[in-house]
Amino acid sequence: MMLQANNIHKTFNAGTINEKVALNGATLELNEGEFVTVIGGNGAGKSTFLNAIAGVWPVDGGSIVIDGEDVTGLNEYKRAKYLGRVFQDPMNGTAADMEIIENLALAARRGQKRGLGWGITKQEKEQYHELLKELDLGLEDRMTTKVGLLSGGQRQALTLLMATLQKPKVLLLDEHTAALDPKTAATVLEATDRIVTEHNLTTMMVTHNMRDAIAHGNRLIMMNEGKVILNIAGEEKKNLTIEDLLHKFEEVSGTEFTNDKAILSK
């Protein structure tokens, strides 16, 4: 078992008028190499679930176990050793004032002690050149360009590469194509599929696009009110349609699906 998130609870602004129960017993187990897409209405707790696993804040209840190690008590930077992350906002995943190779070199040392050795070695430069070439965005010829000068799509592709440079035990993708135009989004998703398959990565991908959720990965979960309410895998996932999903959602939750974006993008 690569990831076990057991009965996670999280309430924001507890005891105030803005109290919001964001996670209410969310549970998920992932085997090595499983690629799960996560869908759900607005405020269902999808991103919050990913943040709980990443350790952005401590959870109120439940436990998170990554590859047999209980990480519930570890803070964000300590837990980073096990996790690759790509965020919705392309600005979030990279250091804009630093060069492309410097960003990659930072990511290559995720979870390692950062001492007084050189920040980038010569072999690394060659390795990064090859990896950037595979992205097919022309970044291999701009390795010393400051990341701030790249487009959103280029930055997301780079962040994806950074997240997987040091093989993560779990890859967390938080609507990582939502801020991109459809064509760029498709390119980044394609790169995601390739990298995840190549390294057999255990992956969670939040998306608001039902078509993407069905087309990618080998498992699908749906969240509602801070819980995982639907879990589809194997053959059933392969034959899934958007109508099936909407129908299932109504069946399980007793309400209509409330994410306009998701419905409109079918």
Partner: peptide, 28 residues
Amino acid sequence: WYFGTEQGSAIRATGSNPNMSKAQGINI
């Protein structure tokens, strides 16, 4: 020399994007 080392790079990353730095395992 120092800001070219791993530690110095971590400092520069912290100044440039603290959230990204945490996600890369840097104790900001």
